[in-house]
Design a binder for these strands. Structure first.
Lengths: 353, 353
DNA sequence: TTGGTTTGCTAAATCGTATTAGCAGTGCGA
DNA sequence: TCGCACTGCTAATACGATTTAGCAAACCAA
């Protein structure tokens, strides 16, 4: 069986001092409390030799802070990208010596409630409430029991919680600019949403914002969108069908796909019609799914910075915790994380007709 | 600010009893300790009205068990599949009212040591030590401080820890059988490893075991493997190259790809040569990556049961914890989780030459 | 010598719960 | 009336740390 853990009392006894003294020394308050050099080094030596490590549960009970935060998301497994978000959060937490509880709600409010309670029962210092795709969410009232931030989500009702989100509007602008810079002005088609502002699938924010950015930049350049197909679901087969439909009325100059899976389907359709990317048709997309660099030619795409989102969420959460402790009042903030373009091989100047 | 939590003392006061009595009632020991119906219901009522929830940190300190387990892996973000493993663990944990700490070591033994310590400092009841691909690992000695299991990993040195692994040998057999059943006996090529037992990339266990299963079944059927290409890395481009090389010496009858990403590359190569799956060439693979159902035609593949692996690991861990408490001695166990075949569209009877 | 200050440490309380030991009060048999 | 068992509850302690308040000894000035 595992031998009993070394406690502060053990260290104190070994050093021949009281637990108080040992605690003072080990928490660095020895100087302040006028503990002699002699005693101080005796304590340190004992702690070292016994390999003493404070029991975090006890510290948690005494001080009320557990060096623990909760990461609650609707689902962790849906995509590779979700993992990156957790990874970012994990590393930011590690930098601060904090551990991460995770939980998933599967979109069930009751489960979410219970999960948040379970975390608060364990006295987490704060909570990251994450969504795996960008959207507005109903903020559960249990969340107020501790500092918290929203990741990849905006509150449906006004709320004091900070949000961390990818900068999707700017991403839309980026995608459009990439095509303009390659010289495209005609035959630009949208796969997944558009061409009109209202042509977006329900649920997420990404479609609306990406479309806004795209329309803004193309509009300013005096370029008219040749067409667009709204897809109910952004899966490869929808991209395949949408692209087939477009191909019936001629060869497009360029495709802006609303995510990489749609682009994957688009590639299949273009292949069927004997069209080559990027010589015949340029393709730009969003997300930077691993798929994007597996496709041939490799797909140019505006990346969702999942890792950075996760890190940022924890950074902001710690700001919240600090301000919570000092009692400072904060105005609500929305943090937008830039979406960088990954330039690959799917864009070329337009083919002269 | 958040109002102070309701404590047991609050409940006791509201019910007009001692904290002892309240504790007894709420832990269900009321009967046993001869607390009257009258008092019992008063306590229950008070607890309910005040919405009392026991402070888990305090309980942890007092009882030594925290209803918390640790999930330590080399990396959580590499693949979508890793997420499924965590999801399985998470749900199994939730079924038992237990929370999950996660941490990743990035393969760094020092980080791993610190992470395990941090978890033990928080008095986790047990630990799942996971690898994201099946392999043998060096078991850190810190692990012995609590019950633990190995997930997707076997101990390099003899160890008392149970392991949970996918049944890769049987998976190899399955892949081979699928081809035999479709009528293939000639021109079966291997992409990723083989044809000889020693033709495997270093590191993982999957290659060795899959190959063993494949060779066994084909051998017993008197079928000779037409060829094989060892790939150092199981990424699409390696599959592409390997398949191109095979195509130089004629059309194969069927391809057994050692994972779906290799198969993805193989599809690209077959496409280049104008060969159609499955009419010209059948393809079977392993893993059941999301990719497999995006490919056209959809890929038949033997699935890695990540979700079940995660669940199983937590189940076995709880057996360990229980036996640890009762002091029972356990013999080391290796649990193999079946890998089911996902039949899709990439296999057909061989083309008559 | 006396009273006050400084030095260097420790006793005791606290966090919120679980649990052991024990304390009043009642009923009963002798 | 006494002793004993039983009923129904509570006091006290422990878990392992932090922190406040305070104590004894040494030192200093008057």
């Amino acid at each position: 069986m595992s031998p009993r853990r070394v406690t502060l009392a053990d260290v104190a006894k070994a050093a021949g001092v009281s637990p108080t003294t040992a605690s003072l020394v080990l928490s660095g308050r020895g100087r302040e409390m006028r503990i002699s050099q002699e005693v101080e080094s005796r304590v340190l030596k004992a702690a070292d030799e016994l390999q003493y490590r404070p029991n975090a549960v006890s510290v948690g009970l005494r001080t009320g802070t557990t060096s623990t935060i909760g990461f609650v998301s609707d689902t962790v497994a849906t995509s590779r990208l979700a993992g990156d978000m957790i990874k970012g959060a994990l590393e930011a937490a590690r930098d601060r010596g904090v551990m991460l509880f995770i939980g998933e709600t599967e979109g069930d409010p009751e489960l979410e409630r219970r999960l948040l309670q379970a975390m608060h029962d364990r006295q987490v210092d704060g909570i990251v409430l994450a969504s795996m795709y960008t959207r507005t969410i109903k903020v559960p009232k249990e969340i107020t029991a501790s500092p918290a931030v929203l990741l990849n989500a905006l509150p449906k009702q006004p709320s004091a919680l900070p949000s961390i989100l990818p900068d999707e509007i700017e991403a839309g602008r980026t995608a459009a600019r990439v095509l303009l810079e390659a010289g495209h002005r005609d035959g630009i088609h949208l796969i997944g949403a558009g061409p009109r502002t209202r042509d977006v699938p329900g649920g997420g924010l990404a479609a609306v914002e990406r479309l806004t950015g795209i329309r803004e930049v193309l509009g300013e350049a005096g370029v008219k969108i040749a067409g667009g197909r709204l897809c109910a679901d952004w899966q490869p087969e929808y991209g395949l069908d949408a692209t087939r439909a477009i191909l019936e009325s001629g060869r497009p100059g360029a495709l802006i796909c609303f995510n990489d899976r749609l682009a994957f389907g688009a590639y299949q359709a273009l292949g069927e019609h004997g069209l080559r990317v990027p010589d015949d048709v340029s393709v730009v997309s969003f997300d930077d799914h691993p798929l994007a660099s597996w496709m041939r030619p490799k797909l140019t795409t505006v990346a969702l910075p999942h890792y950075e989102l996760g890190r940022k969420a924890v950074d902001v959460l710690f700001d919240e915790i600090r301000h919570h402790r000092t009692g400072a009042v904060r105005e609500t903030e929305v943090h937008r994380v830039p979406m960088p373009v990954r330039t690959r091989e799917s864009i070329a100047p337009p083919k002269s007709p």
